[in-house]
Amino acid sequence: MTDLTPPALKPERPYFSSGPTAKFPGWSLDKLKTDSLGRSHRSALGKARLKYAIDLSRELLGVPDDYLVGIMPGSDTGALECAMWTMLGARPATVAAWESFGNVWIQDAAKQLKLKNLTTLDADYGEIPDLASIPQDNDVVFTWNGTTSGAKIPNTDWLAPGREGVTINDATSAIFAMEMDWPKLDATTYSWQKVMGSEAQHGMLILSPKAVERIESYDPEWPLPKLFRLKKGGKINRGIFEGATINTPSMLATEDYIAALEWAKAIGGRKALFERADANARIVYDWIEATPWLRNMVADPAQRTNTGVCFVFQGDWYDSLSPEEQADVPKKIVKKLEGLDVAYDFNGYRDAPPSLRIWCGATVEQEDIKRLLPWIEWAYESLKNGQL
């Protein structure tokens, strides 16, 4: 008879959401500086704190000195769409997607911008399309790491050095967990609330000299809302990349992001962040491989993320269920473990196949992941035996 005794230990920090992600270990409100609160973001203090967030981001990510780093409204979506709206349309473009957010960029290009010379590439959850088929002259929009599928690009070999087109990279669930190949990237975007677990709403836009040249030399045929206007007098508005944001930012969110960056710097910078994410993901990878009723959503190990690890169910019992019953399996597991305060927000994405998704980024502790996995086993066996 199956032992349905629940595990003895719960994760101390039951936060496994893929966004907003867990706060860094030791986080508390009293770690945030508050001098800038209630002040204008245009004040010397406000601009200095925003510039400090930009400078720390540049340092930790190893962004080249001649690239611009700016704070944008609207999270990663605002930053990425700003890049698309200001740069695309000048030459043929390819938008590649292999999960839900990448498909939003396809819809933007096809239905909103209505690009005249557009190619789209897509793939099912857990796979990536043939990126090598993209013409090097084309502008390219792609998602480095699929937040909702767990599939990442294995390398950037498909991008030729010195290629003619600009490369727009949505890196929001990869940044601070995987090394960016900066010489091949012209616009890279991310949000504070993803890998660093900071408060949401603001995004980052990192531009190469080639991206700046495109913006300065090209005026798209469509109207640009104020939030996307990066030029002033025909030139890039460099003030945006020195702390003079386009619109009013949250200084509280800014201070929360700064605290996370300072934590990352204190533990050893991006190398330490990469190592923590890799170690966390390895725990989950090994557990999936050792669990007969699970499989990684991504078949190719070279394409598996070290952040949002996604996995699906298999086996005789699961396969005997109707599609509706299969869809209920992860929902019931998540509901049970959330109710017990074991783990929060580790359900698979709503448009993905029925699945679970454990965030393994650097702000999550290994011990908490190790404690979570037996609880998933217990919940699955309880459900299988009609006791959940």
Rank of each mutant, 00 (worst) to 15 (best):
L4P: 07
K10Y: 09
E12Q: 14
P14W: 00
S17Q: 11
G19M: 10
A22L: 05
K23P: 13
K33H: 14
L37R: 05
R39E: 15
G46I: 11
A48M: 08
R49F: 06
R49T: 06
S57C: 12
V63C: 05
V63R: 02
P64L: 12
M72C: 09
G74W: 13
A83V: 12
T94I: 12
A97C: 02
I106A: 12
I106K: 14
Q107E: 13
A110Q: 12
K114W: 01
T119E: 04
D124V: 08
E127P: 07
L131C: 01
I134A: 03
V140G: 05
T143I: 04
G150S: 03
A151S: 13
A160E: 10
V166P: 10
N169Y: 05
S173D: 02
F176R: 01
A177E: 14
P183Y: 00
A187R: 00
M204D: 03
S208M: 12
K210G: 07
E216H: 15
E216S: 15
S217C: 02
D219A: 11
P220V: 08
K226M: 07
L227P: 06
L227D: 09
M251D: 02
L252T: 05
T254K: 09
I258E: 08
A264Q: 09
I267D: 11
R270W: 01
D278V: 13
D278C: 11
V284A: 07
I288S: 06
T291E: 04
L294F: 02
R295V: 10
D300W: 03
N306A: 04
Q314S: 14
S322H: 01
P330D: 00
G339A: 11
D345H: 13
G348K: 04
G348A: 06
Y349K: 09
R350K: 13
A362V: 00
D368T: 07
I369T: 01
K370V: 02
W378I: 05
Y380A: 00
E381H: 13
K384S: 07
